[in-house]
Simulated scan of single mutants.
Amino acid sequence: MATPKYRRIVLKLSGEALMGDQSFGIAPDIIQYVADEIRSVTAMGVEVAVVVGGGNIFRGIAASSYNMDRASADHMGMLATVINSLALQDAMEQKGVVTRVQTAISMHEVAEPYILRRAVRHLEKGRVVIFAAGTGNPYFTTDTAAVLRGQEVHAEILLKATKVSGLYTADPVVHSDAELIPEISYMEVLERQLRVMDMTAISLAMDNDLPLVVFNLSDAGSMKRIVCGETVGSLIRN
């Protein structure tokens, strides 16, 4: 068995990644696939925390453009992340992986409240912890929540799962000559305004020296290869 390079990681999973070929909602085969990918990493003894978005169900910033109050829209988006988190928890536990969902908004009947020391204890016991409801505050994205939680639990690296193989010099869908950027600094990402994450998340990761890998979720085994120290996707660090 390969030896993992990292002991504790945070996976940022967008809501859109759970849609598959659908235009809305959760694709059962995709969420089972994601659960298998996470299980392959936990099987090596790596502690895994997950932050899930809610864009496949409701996106607050989009709704606010239709004259909905931004705070109300963002709170609805947070609830969407809870739905995705509970679905992922169910898929994980069907595969024998003990999982806990912690939410930044109290809803005791369906999930634990976010308590840092309890989250760390779960990780130490080998449980996957899914952080739902973002930071619990409007105007902050789940990207920022992923960096924040990563810092709080002392994760060694943040993995951002996307639909592309990493950062490119241009949009690879539009520009066939776009080249993959294997490694780049956070400052360059900010200067070039590369939209891998929102600027708040990038700045927070840079200030706290948290490395980030952007990779294609659909490449089976990519998470495991990253955790084992292989070069996959694009690495962003100071």
Rank of each mutant, 00 (worst) to 15 (best):
A80K: 01
F131K: 00
G77V: 03
S64L: 03
I30A: 07
A91W: 09
G45Q: 12
D29C: 07
N137G: 03
L88C: 06
A62Y: 06
Y66S: 15
A27K: 11
S65H: 11
V153N: 01
P138Q: 15
A146Q: 02
M92E: 05
E93R: 13
G96P: 05
A62D: 13
N137I: 03
Y66A: 13
I26P: 05
V110F: 10
E152F: 00
F58S: 02
A87Y: 07
E37Y: 14
G53T: 00
D69Y: 09
R59E: 09
Y114V: 02
L148N: 05
F58Q: 01
S23V: 10
A35C: 07
E93P: 07
K125I: 05
I26S: 08
I61R: 08
P28S: 10
V120P: 12
H154F: 04
M78F: 12
L148D: 03
I26K: 07
I30K: 14
A43H: 11
D69T: 05
G53A: 02
F131I: 01
V128H: 11
S23L: 15
K95A: 08
A43D: 12
A111R: 04
I38L: 14
D29P: 08
P113C: 02
Y139P: 06
N67Q: 15
V98A: 06
T99L: 12
G134M: 06
M44E: 10
V52F: 00
Y114I: 00
R100F: 09
D143E: 01
S64K: 11
R149G: 00
V48S: 14
I115W: 05
V34E: 13
T81R: 06
V129N: 05
E47T: 03
I26F: 10
V41C: 09
V129K: 03
S64Q: 13
V110Q: 05
S64T: 13
V110P: 04
V128D: 05
L86A: 10
A62N: 14
A80G: 13
M107K: 07
M68D: 02
